Structures are given as C-alpha cells and as structure tokens.
Measured scan of single mutants.
Amino acid sequence: SEEELEEFAKEVLRRGITIIVNGIRITEVEIFVKVLREILEKR
C-alpha cells in the first residue's frame, strides 16, 4: 500500500544504510527512488 511505501521511505531515510548490490555500493534511498520511479512509470 502507499502507506507502507511511505513508512519504508521514512525508515530508509532514518537509517541511511549502504548495502552492496552486485558488488556496487548503493544506498537504500537510491534503490527506493529507483523502485518508486518504476512503479510510477507502470501506472
């Protein structure tokens, strides 16, 4: 749901943790923004 997305976004921003994806360091915020864009483009 959109509320869950908002909560996830807030949690990500609070933690600001960097994770490893395919050997490249990407912040969770960047991943969230990318996923959010993909979701919005599909609408």
Rank of each mutant, 00 (worst) to 15 (best):
Val33Leu: 12
Leu13Lys: 00
Glu7Cys: 14
Val35Lys: 04
Val35Ala: 06
Ile26Trp: 05
Ser1Glu: 06
Ile20His: 06
Arg25Ser: 07
Leu36Ile: 07
Glu38Val: 10
Lys10Asp: 01
Arg15Glu: 02
Ser1Phe: 14
Ile26Leu: 06
Ile20Pro: 00
Ile19Cys: 03
Ile20Lys: 06
Phe8Val: 02
Phe8Pro: 02
Lys42His: 10
Glu41Met: 13
Ile20Met: 09
Leu13Ile: 08
Glu4Arg: 12
Leu40Asn: 02
Glu11Gln: 12
Val21Phe: 14
Arg14Ala: 09
Phe32Cys: 00
Glu3Pro: 07
Leu13Gln: 00
Arg37His: 04
Ile26Cys: 08
Ile26Ser: 04
Arg43Asp: 05
Gly23Met: 11
Lys42Ser: 11
Ile24Cys: 11
Arg37Phe: 05
Val29Gly: 01
Glu6Tyr: 15
Ile17Val: 14
Lys10Asn: 04
Ile17Glu: 08
Glu7Pro: 01
Leu5Glu: 02
Arg37Ser: 03
Glu7Arg: 13
Glu7Gly: 05
Val35Asp: 00
Arg43Met: 14
Arg37Asn: 03
Leu5Arg: 01
Glu7Met: 10
Arg14Lys: 09
Phe8Ile: 04
Phe32Tyr: 05
Arg14Met: 07
Phe8Gly: 01
Ala9Ser: 03
Glu4Gln: 10
Glu28Phe: 07
Ala9Glu: 01
Arg14Tyr: 04
Lys34Asp: 02
Thr27Asn: 08
Ile31Glu: 14
Arg15Thr: 05
Phe32Trp: 03
Thr18Pro: 13
Thr18Ala: 12
Glu6Asp: 04
Thr18Asn: 07
Arg43Glu: 05
Glu4Tyr: 13
Ala9Ile: 15
Arg15Tyr: 07
Phe8His: 02
Val21Cys: 11
Lys10Gln: 06
Glu41Phe: 14
Phe8Asn: 01
Asn22Phe: 10
Ile39Ser: 03
Arg15Pro: 02
Leu40Tyr: 08
Ile39Cys: 13
Leu13Ser: 01
Ile31His: 11
Ile31Phe: 09
Lys34Ile: 07
Ile39Arg: 05
Glu7Thr: 09
Phe32Asp: 00
Ile31Met: 11
Leu40Glu: 02
Val21His: 08
Leu13Arg: 00
Phe8Cys: 13
Thr27Lys: 05
Leu5Cys: 14
Ala9Cys: 14
Thr27Asp: 06
Arg37Met: 09
Val33Asn: 01
Asn22Lys: 07
Ile26Arg: 03
Ile39Val: 05
Asn22Pro: 03
Glu41Tyr: 11
Ile24Glu: 06
Gly23Trp: 15
Lys10Cys: 13
Arg15Ala: 05
Arg14His: 04
Arg43Gln: 08
Ile17Gly: 11
Thr27Gln: 05
Arg25Gln: 09
Glu38Gly: 07
Thr18Phe: 13
Leu5Asp: 03
Phe32Gln: 00
Thr27Cys: 08
Glu28Ile: 06
Thr27Arg: 06
Leu13Ala: 00
Glu3Arg: 13
Gly16Arg: 07
Arg25Tyr: 09
Ile20Cys: 09
Phe8Asp: 01
Arg43Ala: 10
Ile19Asn: 00
Leu13Gly: 00
Leu36Gln: 01
Thr18Met: 13
Ala9Tyr: 06
Lys10Tyr: 08
Ile26Glu: 02
Asn22Thr: 05
Arg25Ile: 10
Thr27Glu: 05
Glu4Thr: 11
Glu30Arg: 10
Ala9Pro: 02
Ile24Trp: 13
Ile19Arg: 00
Ala9Thr: 02
Gly16Tyr: 15
Ser1Lys: 08
Leu5Ser: 01
Asn22Ile: 06
Asn22Cys: 11
Gly23Asp: 03
Leu5Asn: 01
Glu11Pro: 01
Ile39Asn: 01
Glu28Asn: 11
Ile19Trp: 05
Leu5Thr: 01
